[in-house]
Every structure is written in structure tokens, then in C-alpha cells.
Amino acid sequence: MTMRATLPDTADILLVEDQPSDAELARRALHDIGLDGRLALARHGTRALDYVFARGEYAHRSIKDIPRLILLDLKLPRLSGAEVLEQLKSDPRTQPIPVVILSSSQEAVDIRRCYALGANSYVVKPVDYVDFTSAVQRLGRYWLQLNEPFSHHT
């Protein structure tokens, strides 16, 4: 499976992850339950924000086409995950988007900070492949299938 250089104009899940291996494992996990079809992957924070706010490279997008879930890693090049989270949650247009932090960090300080910034959930990435796959799949099912999303269109 190859990574697309540009992101689809609309997506249900925006995965913000700089590690290709983690990104691929996550995609595979979602693929296994049929949720990988509308997945956009941003490799760093700036691109993620450009995509969501429909600016720069993604200016042609509509800001109203918000993803139904953002899976956000914390340790990112350029803009950190926390900064991305802060910008998303401080803008009324993007504030309703569920943001789940998917991080290797178990540090209490990270967890506290993310919740303070408005993270909807914080999940520590399991090292074990099976656990990891299971975690990603449960997240996908919950937020995309069980949870009733906010929509600018309705």
C-alpha cells in the first residue's frame, strides 16, 4: 500500500502521524474493518491544519467538510500535536471535531495537557501489534459507527 502525496478532498478520519510504520499499521487495522476508505493521512501538524482549515495546498476544499474523527499523534515534526490540538479546539468551526490523541507517551503531564486543551480522548499506543490493531479498530468503530457526529451541513 502506498501513501498518497496529497489528501482526498473529503475524509471521515484524519490520521496525523509522522511514522510511516505506525501509519500503515493503523491503516491496515482500519482496512480490516472496512473503515480505511475515507482515511486521510497528514505527516505533520502544519499539513493537518491546512487540510482541516482548507487553506494553502487545500484551499480548494470546503472548511465545512470536516472529518468525523482526527487521530492525532503528539510527537510531530514542525508543529507538535499539542499545538495542532490547541488550534483545532480554539476555533469554533473545528472545535466540534472529535480529536483522539494516539500517542506512545504515558507521561501524566502529556495526558493532563491534552485534556486541558480539549482532547476528546487519550489513547496510549500499545507496543504489541495485536493490542495496537485492536485499539485502532475499536476507536474507528466507536467514533464512526457508534458516535453521532456534529455536522456543519445539517
Binding site: 510504520s21 499499521l25 500517542s103 499506543k125 507496543v127
Partner: peptide
């Protein structure tokens, strides 16, 4: 962060 990610990759 950095060590866990490759580990996950190896395992996965």
C-alpha cells in the same frame, strides 16, 4: 515515543 514506534513496527 521514538523507540516504541519502531518496536511496534517490528512486532507488527
Amino acid at each position: 515515543h521514538d523507540l516504541r514506534s519502531p518496536l511496534r513496527a517490528i512486532d507488527g
